[in-house]
Design a protein around this nucleic acid. Structure first.
Length: 465
DNA sequence: CTAGGGTTAG
């Protein structure tokens, strides 16, 4: 009798602790655990697994691993679930070696990894761009372990194919797996997202119909994905119409769709409607209060020139203990540049460095472009030289701005260098250099440079595929 | 374990 009651209590304790952990309230979960022990309700492996999962997701792998010592002291041995949580914690921080260490430790403890353990490892390899290693796990390790992939494994595979630009292979794989497993709503969402990212509007709509034919109802994820595709393909009104439909039909819409709508409205100069949308979101009480929605709002205030609101919002972010991310810093740098405060923007970048953070490529790109446009080409070029990672935005921006500044020789030399590196630069950059050369140097010089560019692009096209 | 939102060039 007493034993039965205790079992019920532990179950209740576990439900409470798990829900606290899932909502990031790890402190409260810890004190509940202590209260439980005081009252004689003993934790079991499930209790500790919830904690480990929470620390893995929201704090860090070391903090999560520390809990395993506490559970061992309590006489409870970690199980496969424990290790799965730990491995996903390592995977979240892209710590491949750590993930493998934990995997080996699990094997040494006599535990057999399950499909989820392999899924986590595969997904990590995909995230690191090591597709070959991911497929090796699937084709060798999973087989050796006597396991077979289910729909969740295929979801990971499909998503990886979509995100690495192999959407056609993803669709092919989808057709193949349909004969083996029943696709989930998530499976359809992954494919729709892949099609939307490559702007295949009609294929995305076809996949949406397939989703419905399979008996599913589109959810907030499906609609947000479609919404973004409309904005990306400049079909703003169509996107807004879909947003209205989501609201009207009472779909489980949340802050995700609103952020996408607000940013599209800002980009098309409709600040008034953007404010309205943001206010609606706050009123609905669905604002999740995460850094993404703050970034969206911050961008809106900057673009609207509402600097007092910017100050207040930055203060609020700090007060709430939210960590500004790369997007936040980019928005701030861009905002400072837009009000002509180039020194402030440079200072912000320097501050990041002092705090031991690397500014992102995007942040640097914005500063380079802003400095150039404000006439400080030399300062921009100094930043350009110091960058370790550059992308096509960096190059395009630098070439265009050098041309505008009349430094055509420099621009053409750099462009040639980028072509030789195999970078994909929009043809507008080449046209800017050539027309500049024609106007300020000579038709002859432009023609010679044109040939050089063509040769570089051609030799790269052969070396690349 | 796996799906959707926010920043930059032309």
């Amino acid at each position: 009798m007493v034993h039965g009651l205790m079992k019920t209590s532990t179950k209740l304790l576990n439900i409470c602790i798990d829900s606290l952990c899932k909502s990031r309230n790890l402190q409260k979960a810890e004190s509940l655990l202590i209260d439980g022990i005081r009252l004689g309700v003993l934790p079991n492996v499930i209790t500790y697994n919830s904690l480990i999962n929470g620390y893995s997701r929201f704090v860090g792998i070391d903090e999560a691993y520390a809990v395993t010592h506490r559970m061992r002291e309590a006489g409870i041995k970690p199980d496969v679930s424990t290790y799965n949580s730990l491995i996903s914690g390592a995977a979240k921080q892209l710590l491949l070696t750590r993930a493998h260490q934990l995997f080996d430790e699990m094997l040494r403890s006599g535990l057999s990894p399950d499909m989820r353990s392999y899924n986590t490892l595969m997904s990590l390899y995909f995230k690191l761009g090591r597709h070959g290693d991911a497929f090796r796990i699937l084709n060798e390790d999973v087989h050796l372990a006597g396991l077979s992939p289910r729909v969740d494994t295929y979801n990971i595979l499909l998503d990886a194919l979509c995100k690495s630009g192999h959407i056609d292979n993803a669709v092919e794989l989808f057709k193949y797996i349909k004969s083996r497993v029943k696709p989930e709503l998530m499976t359809y969402n992954i494919l729709i997202n892949g099609l939307c990212r490559s702007r295949r509007v009609s294929s995305a709509n076809w996949m949406l119909r397939e989703l419905e034919r399979a008996g599913y109802t589109p959810n907030a994820v499906t609609y947000t994905t479609m919404l973004k595709m409309y904005f990306k393909t400049k079909m703003i009104e169509k996107g807004l119409k879909l947003f209205l439909k989501m609201k009207k039909e009472g779909y489980t819409f949340d802050g995700y769709a609103s952020c996408a709508v607000v940013s599209a409205l800002i980009k098309t100069g409709r600040a008034e409607e953007a404010y309205q949308c943001m206010h609606e979101l706050v009123r609905s009480g669905r604002r999740s209060g995460d850094i993404v929605s703050y970034n969206t709002l911050l961008n809106l205030y900057f673009k609207d020139g509402n600097l007092d609101a910017v100050d207040d919002l930055l203060e609020e972010i700090e007060r709430k203990g939210l960590k500004p991310d790369d997007y936040t810093h980019t928005i701030i740098v861009n905002g400072l540049l837009s009000i002509g405060h180039t020194g402030g923007a440079e200072k912000h970048l320097a501050c990041l460095g002092e705090m031991g953070m690397q500014p992102s490529v995007v942040t640097c790109n914005c500063l380079i472009d802003g400095l150039c446009k404000a006439g400080h080409v030399d300062r921009a070029m100094r930043l350009f030289s110091s960058m370790e990672i550059r992308d096509e935005f960096t190059y395009t921006s630098v070439v265009h701005n050098l041309c505008k500044d009349g430094r055509l020789v420099c621009a053409s030399k750099l462009l040639l260098l980028f072509y030789n590196k195999g970078m994909k630069i929009p043809s507008s950059a080449r046209r800017a250099v050539l027309s500049g050369l024609r106007m300020t140097v000579s038709y002859q010089a432009a023609r010679k440079t044109h040939h050089k560019f063509k040769a570089a692009i051609k030799s790269n096209a052969i070396a690349d595929p």
